[in-house]
């Protein structure tokens, strides 16, 4: 429904908006996205790299070996590392 502007029946919204939807293409009018093209690239983020490999988007063969060997550092791993040699 088009925006007819605020009036007594339709007061201005509580919060600002700011999108002109006529500038945004409808999804149905867009070509499909080839996710392999985009998610087949490596990420420095080791968690995402592992997920992309697991889901078949990223091939291990094309990666430097040491990247595939690195152990992701989640918050639990950090806590454990900081417990060492206290």
């Amino acid at each position: 429904m088009a925006d007819s502007g605020p009036n007594d029946q339709n007061p201005a919204p509580l919060h600002g908006r700011g999108c002109d939807l006529t500038l945004i293409p409808k999804a149905a009018d867009m070509p499909p996205t080839d996710l392999k093209e985009f998610l087949g690239v490596d990420s420095a983020n080791p968690f995402l790299r592992a997920l992309r490999i697991e889901r078949g988007f990223l091939k291990v063969d094309g990666l430097p070996r040491e990247l595939t060997l690195a152990a992701p550092l989640d918050s639990a791993a950090l806590a454990k590392l900081r417990e060492q040699q206290k």
């Binding site: 999804a27 149905a28 867009m30 070509p31 499909p32 996205t33 996710l35 998610l39």
Partner: peptide, 15 residues
């Protein structure tokens, strides 16, 4: 990249 097309629901989730 603009994500659209008929499979946008699943594509957005994967992205």
């Amino acid at each position: 990249h603009s994500i659209g097309g008929p499979n946008i629901h699943n594509d957005m989730k994967t992205w």
